[in-house]
């Protein structure tokens, strides 16, 4: 699948569809569904690979996707250790030294780990798709 199926109809529908998919992905992320948001964002990238082939501008190679998945996993653990540094329990978001209410600190911490979850799930999906279509160097 290195060439893509890019006819005029597919290309036009793709251009209309992609902003809505991305917007819905970020909306789901903002309400706290990291796994689902990752799947939606991965669909956007995979769709661009299917329509435009490997020359798509909106693309991510398999090795980079794996690195990104590792970074996403790291963010979660990093936030857990960061709360330890400020003297709290592991993943106790209330100890962040910001001028906020306790509930807002918790919301901020939850947002941070959801971003990590989203990155990990999205990059894992893209890496598996990339390995399936066999694009990597021989």
């Amino acid at each position: 699948m290195n060439k893509g199926f890019g006819t005029v109809v597919l290309d036009t529908v793709f251009r209309f569809l992609i902003p809505f998919i991305l917007l819905y992905g970020f909306y789901v992320l903002s309400t706290g569904g990291g796994f689902q948001a990752g799947a939606l964002l991965a669909i956007a990238v995979i769709l661009s690979r299917v329509v435009h082939g490997t020359e798509a501008a909106f693309n991510l190679s398999g090795n980079r996707a794996l690195i990104l998945a590792g970074i996403g996993t790291f963010i979660y653990g990093f936030i857990g250790v960061a709360t330890l540094v400020w003297g709290g329990n592991f993943l106790e978001y209330g100890v962040f030294p910001f001028q906020m209410l306790s509930a807002e600190k918790h919301a901020l911490g939850i947002m941070g780990i959801e971003v990590g979850v989203t990155l990990c799930v999205m990059a894992t999906f893209i890496a598996i798709f990339d390995a399936l279509v066999g694009k990597e160097e021989k």
């Binding site: 706290g32 569904g33 209410l101 306790s102 509930a103 919301a107 911490g109 939850i110």
Partner: peptide
């Protein structure tokens, strides 16, 4: 306590973050 509108997220990411 968590400032999150979604109760499931509050349990998943805060109370059961581990």
């Amino acid at each position: 306590e968590t400032g999150t509108a979604n109760m499931v997220t509050a349990v998943l990411a805060d109370y059961r973050g581990y």
